[in-house]
Design a protein around this nucleic acid. Structure first.
Lengths: 192, 192
DNA sequence: CGTGGAAGTCAACAGGTGTTGACCGCACGG
DNA sequence: CCGTGCGGTCAACACCTGTTGACTTCCACG
């Protein structure tokens, strides 16, 4: 196994490419991001990007890989789950480009959309399943939670609707906390 | 005024271009939609698109112009406002590409995002302002309503999260009705 | 030293893009 | 009957894209 071998000289370059790629994908989405622009940001030749990552699609896959780090919501007092989730995601959005990468790219790139579905299935669904025994209902609630957070992120970071941009962190937490809570504690009451 | 003049022979072509453009923009977003593809769909020469609409950006502006047709929500009994809104938007999404045009394009095209902000200000905000006297709070509530609907649309039509796709119309109405209602009847209770 | 392989550069490719201007043909008013 | 103008076609432009392969430079090790 060579995974613990001495760090190669190229690791720094690799990381620089990945940083530049994340910024570009977050700002411009998949289609408008060019390999040449990423290379220029990282101060290297476009050919290096291909050498290290193989193709634009694989570069994107590497740049879009991230962890939502959803906190365990099982132990919290029930009236703090919603505001805790809201606060967590607001912080996560502000200090990382990863979610904007996904939102801006998934709109036009099927691989990015597939990636989003995977993150949803592997990270959001299990977290909600800890609260809801019925797996089918858990999947539905997880989807509603995702819709809440994605709607907020779209309005605040992508569309930049003025009222949403103007709201501060604590105001958003105060407004979304109860909303998320009522989603999580709701059960289907309709037909079937 | 020549607006009532005999219909020109070119009007049909113009409409064909617009139809093809809306489909392409809805399916692929702004960047990946090419003038050549639109022209091929409309069975005409790419140069005609330029002749009629001037540029790709102006073609987009023409294709993205639409009306949400938000129903008057003042007269409804308070417990039907939410489900009424949910039902209206689900129907609107299913029978028109316009909203997908906006969602897919605004992610990477600033003009499209500006267009979305205008539609929000001209159509969503006034509708909510009929229920909420304080204009600042009305803007905030309108933004939250928009976030609800955009989150749902993103998950169902763009990201295609399986649980959201699987839900039927009446299930979505049943789940989103109360949610929208609690948004509309909420007031800010936090700091300030 | 010198040699082998990794790291990085350069120039070019094949294809696609928005956009332009010169050209053609047909209907219609004189 | 002509010719004028509108609807439409064609070919080309300048540019940008992802990707490739041959080339040079540099460093570490024998």
């Amino acid at each position: 196994m060579t995974s613990a071998s001495r760090p190669r000289r190229s690791d720094a370059t690799r990381a620089a490419i990945l940083n530049a790629a994340r910024e570009r994908f977050a700002a411009d989405g998949y289609d408008r991001t060019t390999i040449r622009a990423v290379a220029a940001d990282a101060r290297i030749d476009p050919a290096m990007v291909m050498r290290y990552f193989g193709s634009k699609q694989q570069l994107f896959a590497a740049a879009a890989d991230f962890d939502l780090r959803i906190p365990a919501i099982t132990g919290l007092p029930p009236d703090q789950v919603g505001s805790g989730l809201a606060a967590h995601f607001l912080d996560r959005w502000e200090d990382s480009d990863s979610l904007q990468v996904m939102l801006r790219s998934a709109a036009t790139n099927e691989a990015a959309a597939e990636h989003a579905r995977r993150i949803f299935a592997e990270q959001v669904t299990p977290a909600v399943a800890a609260l809801e025994p019925d797996p089918e209902e858990a999947a539905a609630l997880a989807a509603l939670v995702a819709a809440q957070l994605i709607g907020l992120a779209m309005c605040r970071y992508v569309l930049r609707l003025p009222p949403v941009v103007a709201m501060g962190r604590e105001e958003l937490v105060a407004r979304y906390g109860p909303l998320l809570e009522s989603v999580l504690t709701s059960r289907r009451t309709g037909t079937r």
